[in-house]
């Protein structure tokens, strides 16, 4: 497979995952805003921006709908939802002949929908929120479209090297996003170990789970009793839940191994080593140990490892020096 094609598929997938994640965070927080809260609204929106990696062009000005509009539509902000969808579609267009027609149509119609002027108009009036239109409907539709795209990808594209690059992009993005999300909430949820959430605090904690689509899955495992350790255990270390960090890293590792087998790269030891080490360290970690140590430092170390995996993928498959390729 051409390196450029792998690069485009990888980024197409990352951008869509990013768009979906941002849409979900925004939707959850707009919903929480309707209730009284133990924490100030400033704090909550700043926390959401933190979870999105504090995009440089996005500032909290005190108006939630303005923030929502900017985060959704501001194309000068490269991490806005619409920017991400445009970028994903642009990547797909560059490799149009590599993906299935169904995939292309799904992504292209999402692009046409989110860039149409009518959509922007619906988001302009705050009042629209009261009538079930407005941001919520749009965000739900966007998330749904991304999910459909992933379904179409799985059922219409050969699960070969290209598909594996799509998986790798998706799970690496998801692992990074979950790590950042936990980091943003670390002070509020794990700052005070003996806290039992009640009322509005309970609502805030379910918000965290909802940000990772994890509330129902959590309840199935632990019932609706929320404790801070269990939340951390679930979002960080659960082996079966697809948005947990461990699940993401395991999936990433599998995709990277599949890519290595198909492309016959012999110099993949470094990539195997760092992805395997991260996967193993999550597999054998205990939540008590993590909480006795420095949680933020732990999460940041995971993020650094994700970054190193990304760079190694690039060095190995996409942006390798010609001299080494000629020698090997």
């Amino acid at each position: 497979m051409l390196s450029r094609v792998a690069d485009s598929l990888y980024w197409m997938s990352r951008y869509l995952e990013r768009a979906e994640h941002a849409a979900r965070l925004l939707d959850v927080n707009l919903n929480l805003m309707l209730d009284e809260s133990s924490i100030s609204s400033d704090h909550r929106w700043l926390r959401m921006l933190h979870a999105l990696g504090n995009p440089s062009r996005l500032k909290w000005s005190g108006n939630a709908y303005e923030l929502a509009r900017n985060l959704t539509f501001d194309t000068s902000n490269k991490s806005s939802i619409v920017s991400c969808i445009i970028a994903a579609r642009e990547n797909a267009r560059q490799v149009r002949e590599q993906i299935s027609t169904e995939q292309w149509q799904k992504l292209n119609s999402l692009y046409i929908e989110v860039t149409s002027p009518q959509v922007k108009r619906a988001m302009r009036t705050d009042a629209a929120a009261d009538f079930g239109g407005g941001p919520t409907a749009f965000l739900q539709a966007a998330m749904e479209a991304v999910h459909q795209f992933q379904g179409v990808t799985d059922s219409t594209m050969s699960h070969g090297e290209g598909w594996q690059f799509i998986q790798a992009g998706r799970y690496l993005e998801r692992a990074t996003a979950t790590g950042l999300l936990l980091e943003a909430y670390s002070e509020d949820v794990w700052g005070n170990p003996d806290c039992v959430p009640e009322g509005n605090e309970y609502l805030d904690w379910t918000g965290l789970l909802r940000c990772a689509t994890a509330f129902e899955a959590y309840c199935k495992v632990y019932t609706a009793d929320l404790t801070s350790e269990r939340i951390l255990e679930f979002l960080l270390l659960d082996a079966e839940f697809p948005h947990s960090l461990r699940f993401s890293i395991d999936s990433l590792k599998h995709s990277l191994q599949a890519i290595q087998e198909r492309s016959g790269k012999t110099r993949a030891e470094e990539l195997n080593r760092i992805s395997g080490r991260l996967s193993a360290s999550l597999g054998f970690a205990s939540v008590d140990e993590i909480l006795t140590g420095d949680l933020v430092a732990y999460l940041q170390s995971i993020q650094r490892q994700c970054q190193a995996i990304h760079e190694t993928i690039y060095r190995l498959y996409v942006d390798y020096p010609i001299q080494t390729a000629l020698a090997g």
Partner: peptide, 22 residues
């Protein structure tokens, strides 16, 4: 389908960059 940036010429031989090398 290749673009110019996919091609590399070395010693008068043309290669394309793939994930498994040139």
């Amino acid at each position: 389908l290749v673009e110019g940036r996919d091609l590399v010429v070395h010693d008068n031989v043309c290669y394309m960059r793939t994930t498994s090398g040139l």
